[in-house]
């Protein structure tokens, strides 16, 4: 995480020094990359972490919350019951809402109502990073879209810019809503945005994300984590050989969470 942040700051300082040109360059550059990589994996020799969700396997375990609980306990995510103010990093929604553009009037009831696991997509072209006025949210070299809650001014432009509803704002102090605060991970203050970070703190220690670990341990085996830049990785092979969907593909955000229905 620290090295990613440093890398990021270097790039940002360069961009700031170049002023407007750099700003325009970055989003035009991103488009060029989108075009060049349409049929190819992302460039660069480093890692590109991604997640694949097998929605059928996930749905077989009705009411299972193993991944959600693991994530929320690990990261001190508050449990706020009212929908207006809730904070969530990982959650489930029905296929008919998640893939509005893929279902139609003849889609079967089971499919339409099948719960899908949702989290930050860690897009390769993240709109939240583009709009953030302070670089409090930024892209790390190996993929995860990160959040610096100490720099965030709470303007919520990233919440507005995210097409996936993956970002939560702390409308109030979250601490009273955390059952046991785990001192290993800092809880957030009120007035800042938070979201899934792909467990960058665990990745740095060579561990898989907490949700993936919990899913595997529960026996469901619906979540697969790996490096898309590694041609022999299991996730890369699955994404290559099956129709793995990404949410709102047409927006050009290039999500790195893949779904098989």
């Amino acid at each position: 995480m620290a090295s990613g942040r440093r890398e990021f700051l270097k790039t940002a300082a360069g961009a700031a020094a170049l002023g407007l040109g750099a700003g325009a360059g970055s989003f035009l550059g991103a488009q060029a990359l989108a075009r060049s990589s349409a049929g190819q994996p992302a460039a660069g020799g480093g890692k590109r972490y991604a997640l694949a969700v097998d929605t059928k396997k996930c749905a077989e375990r009705e009411g299972c919350r193993a991944c959600i609980d693991a994530c929320h306990v690990t990261h001190n995510v508050p449990r706020i019951e009212n929908r207006e103010e809730e904070v969530k990093w990982v959650w489930k929604e029905e296929v008919q809402w998640v893939f509005q553009d893929r279902v139609h009037e003849y889609s079967g009831e089971e499919l339409r109502r099948r719960p899908v696991l949702l989290l930050c997509n860690h897009c390769d072209n993240p709109p939240c990073v583009r709009v953030c006025p302070t670089q409090a949210t930024f892209k790390s070299a190996d993929g995860p879209v990160m959040m610096d809650p100490h720099r965030c001014i709470g303007c919520r432009y990233c919440v507005v810019g995210c097409p996936y509803g993956a970002r939560s704002f702390n409308w109030k102090d979250p601490k009273p809503y955390i059952e046991h605060v785990d001192p290993a991970y800092p809880p957030r203050a009120r007035g800042v945005v938070e979201k899934c970070t792909m467990c960058s703190e665990r990745l740095a220690r060579g561990l898989e994300p907490a949700c993936v670990e919990a899913c595997t341990r529960s026996g469901a085996g619906a979540l697969l984590f790996g490096d898309m830049n590694e041609p022999e990785s299991e996730i890369r092979k699955r994404v290559e050989s099956s129709l793995a969907l990404r949410r709102k593909e047409h927006l050009g955000t290039r999500p790195q969470v893949y779904y098989t229905l």
């Binding site: 700031a16 709009v131 006025p133 302070t134 001014i153």
Partner: peptide, 17 residues
């Protein structure tokens, strides 16, 4: 949400925003 930090916009100028 964090009004005391609003000057971060000047402190960390971000031309893409």
């Amino acid at each position: 949400g964090q009004p005391m930090r609003v000057l971060n916009v000047m402190l960390h100028p971000t031309p893409q925003s």
